[in-house]
């Protein structure tokens, strides 16, 4: 998918650029974009290092495990088809916490583990279960407290206040997640459960 997309972007750009007489701008853009990528990565390393360092501290202090115990009743309500004390619940919570804290690289391994554990409860192995659909509804809605990557890019681009978008981003993602859960619930009640 990404290969086709990349090819399409470049083909449309170059062909349209030639037709519209913007070839020289296209050539300049190729090299200025490459340079921009270097600047961007260098600007981002510092911010990423800070958050990864902080995440490690949170993990080592046992805070992550503690929050799992606190949120257990809530997670049980959202995933009623997963039996109580099933290991999938722990993985789901770790994934959601990592997403919530903006630790995308930590979220993915927890999320894949949760999927594997939910698959063990699945009567038809090729078809998504209710719990999986709910889990991915939350994951695709991008529930995030601190959008670290965006803050890093904004900082690299010289923003006066890179973090000012946290408030609106949180409201946006909360709205999206609420809608995701409602729509998921609606689909679930209309179809037969599995």
């Amino acid at each position: 998918m990404i290969n086709t997309l990349w090819l399409a972007l470049i083909t449309i750009g170059i062909v349209y650029g030639i037709l519209a007489g913007n070839v020289s701008q296209v050539t300049a853009a190729i090299f200025s974009s490459a340079e921009l990528a270097v600047q961007l990565i260098l600007g981002m390393v510092g911010v990423m290092a800070f958050w990864l360092g902080l995440a490690k501290v949170a993990e080592s202090s046992g805070l992550l495990e503690k929050s799992i115990r606190i949120f257990n009743p809530l997670v049980r309500r959202i995933f009623p088809s997963v039996p109580s004390r099933h290991p999938a619940l722990g993985s789901i919570l770790l994934n959601l916490t990592a997403n919530f804290l903006g630790l995308g690289n930590a979220a993915t391994p927890f999320g894949l583990r949760a999927m594997r554990q939910m698959q063990s409860l699945n009567p038809c192995p090729h078809e998504a279960t209710d719990a999986m659909c709910t889990f991915l509804a939350i994951n695709t809605s991008g529930l995030t407290l601190i959008p670290t990557m965006v803050i890093a890019v904004r900082a690299a681009q010289g923003s006066q206040d890179p973090t000012e978008i946290i408030g609106v981003t949180l409201l946006t993602t909360l709205t999206a997640t609420t809608v995701a859960l409602l729509v998921d619930r609606l689909f679930r009640s209309k179809g037969r459960s599995r």
Binding site: W6, L9, I10, I12, G13, I14, Y16, G17, A20, N22, Q25, V26, A28, A29, I30, S32, S33, A34, L36, A37, V38, L40, I41
Partner: peptide, 17 residues
Amino acid sequence: FLLGMLVAIGILRASGF
């Protein structure tokens, strides 16, 4: 990945499309 995407999007933007 960032470089590849930035170049493709840079081309698309510069073309006026």
